[in-house]
């Protein structure tokens, strides 16, 4: 009984962390079609922003939920103005440019913070479920992921800004004809995407030892999740994170963590073979 509860929590946690890792990329790549190879580095910078803020005496939750997204969002804004905005619609060029950016960010982080592992400890203590100890922070990650999905849905579906953003991504010429500046809207959307990446990096920071090259560990998973999700932003994100999180945890518990990772990749290959356009090209069609 206890063990099934613990495994359920671990599974939800795995799904929630995939959602967090991929949310920023879902906006930048899924919505805006910018292949952001520096996504992992945006997360890494979110982590460093959190750790630096905590060391300066900021409350850890404020650092994670407010400071890090703002800092990374602003960095994203600068990057968008200087580089990305010249490259909209040029997939290969953005790949090259953002890959270069990722190297620059790694280099800068190494110069500023040094090539050593840093970190902060988790702000929530563990607790016991029957004979088992659970990491209390897992619940925090699950809650944040749920709130994030609800918030994204509410903003995109329920607000005028969300409607304008979605419209512009589909037909920027029509949006322009209606009097909205696609340039501004792209900028704002990229800011949001970057901020989400920063948030993910910040939330995961207390769980890992952070080094300037940490971003590389997330990038593959984020792209797999977003691509397998397909055209619908939120339904795709949630459905693919759920499938991959479920598959990898089942194999992790049944066999070993390495097989769990392998199973995730195999699942992705099979899924994309059966549904090349992603899950939401077949299921949840037309949903957001």
């Amino acid at each position: 009984m206890d063990i099934s509860f613990v495994i359920l929590v671990e599974m939800l946690y795995a799904i929630a962390s995939l959602v967090l890792i991929s949310a920023g990329l879902a906006v930048v790549f899924g919505m805006m079609k910018v292949i952001n190879l520096a996504h992992g580095e945006f997360m890494m910078m979110g982590g460093y922003a959190t750790i630096t803020a905590v060391q300066l005496g900021v409350n850890v939750f404020i650092a994670m939920l407010i400071v890090a997204p703002l800092v990374v969002g602003v960095i994203g804004l600068i990057v968008e103005r200087l580089v990305i905005r010249h490259l909209y619609g040029r997939l290969v060029d953005t790949m090259l440019a953002t890959w270069g950016l990722s190297l620059v960010f790694i280099g800068l982080a190494t110069m500023i913070f040094g090539n050593t592992t840093t970190g902060i400890s988790t702000p929530i203590p563990g607790f016991a479920v029957g004979d088992y100890q659970i990491n209390g922070y897992n619940f925090f990650i699950i809650v944040v992921a749920i709130l994030l999905v609800v918030l994204m849905y509410a903003v995109l579906k329920g607000t005028r800004a969300g409607l304008i953003a979605r419209g512009t991504m589909q037909r920027s010429d029509m949006a322009a004809a209606l009097g909205y500046s696609p340039d501004r809207i792209y900028m704002a959307t990229f800011f949001c995407g970057s901020a989400l990446s920063g948030l993910a990096g910040a939330i995961l920071a207390p769980l890992v030892g952070l080094v300037p090259t940490s971003g590389g560990a997330y990038i593959a998973k984020a792209f797999i999740t977003v691509i397998a999700g397909g055209p619908s932003l939120i339904a795709g994100l949630v459905s693919s994170a759920t499938s991959f999180g479920f598959v990898s945890q089942v194999f992790t518990f049944a066999i070993s963590p390495v097989i769990g990772e392998v199973a995730l990749l195999v699942a992705a290959v099979i899924l994309l073979r059966l549904m090349p356009q992603g899950i939401t090209s077949r299921f949840f069609k037309g949903k957001l």
Binding site: E10, D131, Q133, L207, V208, S214, S256, P257, V258
Partner: peptide, 19 residues
């Protein structure tokens, strides 16, 4: 259990250890 050098999530492992 063996872990590739880039694995940073040990949640499920910690549960398995407790089992």
């Amino acid at each position: 259990d063996f872990f590739p050098l880039d694995v940073s999530d040990f949640g499920s492992t910690i549960t398995k250890i407790q089992q």
